[in-house]
Design a protein around this nucleic acid. Structure first.
Length: 278
DNA sequence: CATCAACCTGATCA
DNA sequence: ATGATCAGGTTGA
């Protein structure tokens, strides 16, 4: 490893494995993925991460080094007894700061597909359009996708194909400016994102949270919905649930969402029977 | 700050 | 092994 970035707390397994970003893979004790068009390797250290492939400042921004997660989790713990336990159990689970275009495109692809298929679709799009670098293909730039719609048809994206093509075209020609959206307040940001075909409440919140620095966003997916129903006895539509999250967990509600999502994932895997594989 | 079926396709469930 | 059902959701009625 070339370098070491002091950052704590950070738990790479939780942070990279929780599903907020779609292209990280773990092999042995090393996490491999992309930041921008660079292949990056990360390894857990005691008080930070060993890394290679990126400048430390880029990695620091990606891992949101400026977020004081201990304080954020402490604040959430003070608001809610369940959060108190989760903050302890999942200490080191951090939000990532992803690149908006890639985040939006991948979450658009993620609609109504299972985890396995999402990964397949994302890799396929990268393989066909992304710059080839040693170790794989980068996530393609919008103009690379917009440039050959025929090729996109071959990616088996179903009804997402047209949505992604339209998005890529509009971002490439400047009709959609993600950087401008990033600077709006949370409500304005989500409102603008939702004007894009294929972007509804959930995708908009994910993009706002994972790539546009809107930590109050509280994406409600099937898992979070179940959590809120059973743990907090809150029911209702998307707006009702999302608003509950922001009201209960405050201006960094997105971190609470990650904790709940992780809890739901762990509970689900505990419920499964061991089948020894194949 | 709701509701509900339809929707591409491959994974996963009987 | 093979057909039904489901999946990190969005859309339009």
């Amino acid at each position: 490893m070339r370098g070491f970035l002091a950052i704590a707390p950070v738990d790479l397994d939780l942070t990279l494995g929780c599903g907020q970003a779609h292209r990280w893979k773990k092999a042995g004790d090393e996490w491999r993925g992309f930041i921008g068009n660079r292949v990056v390797v990360l390894k857990q250290g005691d008080a930070g991460v060993y890394f290679e492939g990126v400048p430390p400042s880029t990695l620091a921004a990606y891992l949101r080094i400026d977020d004081d997660v201990d304080s954020i989790y402490a604040d959430m713990a003070s608001r809610d007894p369940l959060m108190s336990r989760l903050a302890e159990r999942y200490r080191g689970l951090r939000l990532l700061r992803q690149e908006p275009w890639e985040c939006l495109a991948t979450y658009m692809l993620a609609t109504n597909a299972n985890i396995s298929r999402i990964g397949g679709m994302v890799e396929e799009v990268c393989r066909r359009f992304g710059d080839e670098v040693e170790g794989g293909h980068a996530f393609p730039r919008p103009e690379q996708i917009a440039g050959s719609p025929e090729l996109l048809e071959e990616c088996r994206l179903g009804y997402r194909c047209q949505r992604l093509r339209s998005l890529a075209e509009r971002v490439a020609d400047g009709g959609i400016c993600l950087e401008a959206m990033r600077h709006l307040d949370y409500e304005g940001c989500v409102k603008d994102l939702k004007t894009i075909d294929g972007v509804g409440d959930k995708v908009a919140d994910c993009v706002a949270l994972f790539s546009m620095d809107h930590l109050e966003a509280f994406p409600v997916d099937a898992r979070i919905k179940r959590c809120l129903n059973t743990l907090y006895e809150v029911k209702g539509g998307y707006q009702r649930l999302s608003e509950f999250g922001r009201g209960r967990f405050g201006d960094a509600a997105g971190y609470a969402q990650e904790l709940l999502y992780q809890l739901a994932g762990d509970q689900r895997s505990l419920g499964q029977t061991q089948d020894g594989g194949q």
